[in-house]
Amino acid sequence: MIDYLREIISGTWSLFVGLGITIRYFFQPVVTVQYPHQTLPMTPRFRGHIELVKDEETGETKCIVCGMCQKACPSNCITVNGEKREGVKGKVLTEYTLDFTKCSLCGLCVESCPTAAITFSKDYNLAGVRKEAYIFDLKKRLEAKN
């Protein structure tokens, strides 16, 4: 009988202790951010979808069309094409398409690139209603930046 009463009292007290914690935290600063009105800074290593890097000297892409990224990709979402041009050493990039619908952001392509021609973008606000919106023509994106 005494144990029963003790349990009722200690049990009720435990509920008040919990409520006390909740009330204490109610008066503490807010930890959440009012997204999208406020945003947090991205960490420098954030891995978004890939992007072609501009060569500072020539203003063109650093890509040498070796196809290593295409081979390294586990889900075959990269298509690289190039052609031989007269007077230019090596191949010239004509197409670099990323099918972001299949990409799993593992970063194996960036690691395999011998000339560091691709990097991660900081895009995280991706939304669209059509599948085609996620098939990125990275060459065009690079040219649009210039």
Partner: peptide, 11 residues
Amino acid sequence: ESVTGSRLTYC
């Protein structure tokens, strides 16, 4: 995230 670059499905 600051080390691996991703927040959930780390690689």
